[in-house]
Design a protein around this nucleic acid. Structure first.
Lengths: 183, 183
DNA sequence: ACTAATTAGTACGATGTCGCACTATATACC
DNA sequence: GGTATATAGTGCGACATCGTACTAATTAGT
């Protein structure tokens, strides 16, 4: 701690840190984070990105290690579970990810046998995607972690607050056409 | 529309889409999105990622085109505006991004003259970062778009709802130590 | 003091991401 | 029906990202 004390004394005279924060403990709600949240010009967006980042980040890393799946592949898997018979283009548009990323994910998933591709009879440009048995099992194994983590994340909110959060998100999404226009 | 009608008739017999949704209009709150949101096993996380994705995605793309900045560089710029005299490590920890990404962003920003690096006197391993004049101007130019977009995004909420949203985010972040543990 | 453990930062390589250009198919319009 | 336009998907190439391994500096423990 001698170094820290010396540093404090020299503040204002030399180049050094003025944030009284030590790595390793209370990382996530330390003084540093408070400084970044305070008077933030984009309070909602910053907080939301922060949470989203810490929610998905470790989960995606875990997926890459344990299941050898990329984030794009997971997105395709997830969308197909929610709504079978999608094609790549639709997944691209509804998730906001570039179609080339989705296309390469589709190719990888097919090679791994997690999805099947069949040409749409009504429009031979389209490739209709389905989860295979193996794909469903993989999804089931992965989604568990996501659900568990969401549960932990919301533990601090009471049921009414959780409902309110979903409601507010729903409102924002419902109005997305007004604000989510591309540049 | 003849194709659509034919497709509908054939549903159940052949491989094809069963989502009555056309690209190009009502993309973001179409039937497809509703299908994905309904009975979602991770209702909060999905919605949050969705919004965060559509919020930052186009903004980052714009930044890359107009200002030749990567997302990591923007993160560094943003953090330094909020709290000068940070070092790379702290930015890495407080944002959850790997330190190698932050390190390369720092190097690029320095080369472009947007930040300065000085060795910390109290600990010569640390490189204390500062925004340069040019860096501040760049930040000011970019942040405008973010603020404007957040404003548009929240237009559908009334003031009380906005406050509640920030409050709920704050609660989740305050409890982050409990749920944001790495895997 | 001396060694071991921790921390800041770098170098490098693998790979995921994504924009651009292209082909093929389908639709719209006259 | 024939041409123009829009759409689905692919190939390629550039680049950002990020994990691993490393060096240098600091701190802790004895």
């Amino acid at each position: 701690m001698a170094g820290r004390a010396a540093a404090k004394r020299r503040i204002g005279k030399t180049e050094e840190l003025n944030v009284g924060w030590q790595p390793g403990e209370r990382v996530l709600h330390g003084l540093l984070l408070e400084a970044i949240l305070r008077d933030n010009p984009i309070p909602v967006a910053y907080r939301m990105n922060y949470i989203a980042n810490f929610y998905v980040g470790p989960l995606v890393a875990m997926m890459e290690r344990s299941f050898k799946l990329t984030r794009s592949e997971w997105i395709v898997l997830f969308c197909l579970t929610r709504q079978p018979r999608l094609n790549a283009q639709q997944i691209s548009i509804v998730t906001g990810r570039p179609k080339t990323s989705i296309a390469s994910a589709v190719k990888l998933l097919q090679k791994k046998g997690l999805i099947t591709r069949k040409t749409d009879i009504a429009d031979s440009r389209r490739q209709v995607l389905h989860l295979s048995e193996s794909g469903q099992r993989t999804y089931a194994a992965i989604i568990k972690s996501f659900v568990e983590r969401e549960k932990e994340m919301l533990e601090t909110l009471d049921p009414a607050e959780r409902r309110e959060l979903v409601r507010l998100f729903g409102k924002i999404i419902a109005a997305a056409d007004a604000w989510a226009k591309p540049y």
